[in-house]
Design a protein around this nucleic acid. Structure first.
Lengths: 209, 209
DNA sequence: CGGTGAGCTAACAATATTGTTAAACACGAG
DNA sequence: CTCGTGTTTAACAATATTGTTAGCTCACCG
């Protein structure tokens, strides 16, 4: 081998990459270790050599995805200096863009957390504090803005669920939504652009006094 | 046996019911035929006696669920005589109630359609015509209402996706949303009531001129 | 009654999937 | 060079899961 170090890293990394794709596409139960190995271009035994078990390998992948989800929520701290409404708009767009760049992520994480309640409670422990302070913070800002007559008085939790719904669901259900769009086969780019604008406008209308 | 006919029907029916629960809970790949048989209280062989293969049994279940989804869209024809806005409100509520009464349905159908593109195109063939005329019809009504100044001029497709997102996503992601609600463990009933109202209000605001 | 057939059971067969092992290999350190 | 260590391979083992079969039971029908 010309470059051992590179090759070394590659084998483990190749397996991880193939596993990521496999698990994201088929879910834990639908994923097959032989297919992971073959699409990584390594023998089946290598997978067990590096990761011991399928579950182990899955956890490696899943932890990353879980972190990614947690990270996606940091967008709500963006642009603290902008005027309230502009800031909200930017936040919604940033969150939408994150989802658009990780289209398979929500369905994957939701599915796996639902079928693994023990993972769900771990995840909860990891982020519930963070989310709690986040919601409280935004609620305070929103109350302030409401006092100034900039927006309606709202329950921030409800608004956040609205945002998540509007930003995530269209990607989860994209194959089905194509049916609604029926006749005119949609350009995916155009669909994304439209939904992005729609999410923002819906929430903006909702916040109006 | 005291009552042969009843028992006959029961065995097949018991398997179907157990299978429905198993497939809805774990998906096709996660579902195990032995677990279906045992939770139906019959021997493993009976399952193959009545349904031949796992896939066959799955299709029986899935077709029903698919029909249910198609049927759920009929609510959009409700209350044709009410004033436009009241009618929309009633329709959103009816659709929400349907989802609330079939909470596991959307995630199941979406997951299976995504992992079975051939089923997706079958489903598309089944309902795309229906959906097409439905959208066209509502669009015409909406244009009329807009002309009269009752609502903004809107693209009905976008609104329908909004409605679907707001009505479906909170149930799909319910376990995760409990994390957002964090501290105060939510009463499920209260959560549903809140989301029901929220869906209607969001869309109503969106439609305002 | 005897036999016929649908429903049923237990045991088995076949396959798919995951996991293991012994031996070969590559390669740097001593 | 050769020893040791980490990597790789091919073949195998173990288990899980689906599917099949031969034969039993029993109500029913002539």
């Amino acid at each position: 081998m010309v470059n051992k170090i590179t090759d070394d890293k590659n084998t483990e990394e190749l397996i991880l990459l193939a596993a990521e794709h496999e698990f994201m596409t088929y879910g834990y139960n639908g994923a097959k270790t032989v297919r992971i190995a073959s699409s990584a271009g390594v023998t089946h035994a290598m997978l067990h050599y590096y990761f011991r078990t399928k579950e182990n390998l899955f956890n490696k992948v899943f932890e990353e995805k879980q972190k990614l989800v947690a990270k996606s929520m940091e967008v709500f701290f963006l642009n603290p200096d902008l005027p309230f409404l502009e800031r909200i708009k930017a936040v919604i767009e940033a969150h939408f863009d994150f989802v658009a760049n990780n289209q398979a992520l929500p369905r994957f994480v939701i599915n796996e957390l639902i079928s693994n309640p023990e993972k769900l409670s771990l995840f909860k422990d990891q982020i519930s504090e963070f989310v709690g302070t986040l919601v409280a913070l935004i609620q305070k800002e929103a109350d302030e803005a409401a006092k100034q007559g900039i927006i309606r008085r709202v329950n921030v939790t409800d608004i956040l669920i609205d945002v998540a719904s509007l930003n995530i669901f269209p990607f989860v259900a994209f194959p089905l939504l194509q049916i609604i769009k029926g006749d005119c086969l949609i350009d995916r780019e155009e669909f994304i652009a439209t939904r992005r604008k729609e999410s923002v406008e819906v929430i903006m209308q909702r916040l109006k006094p």
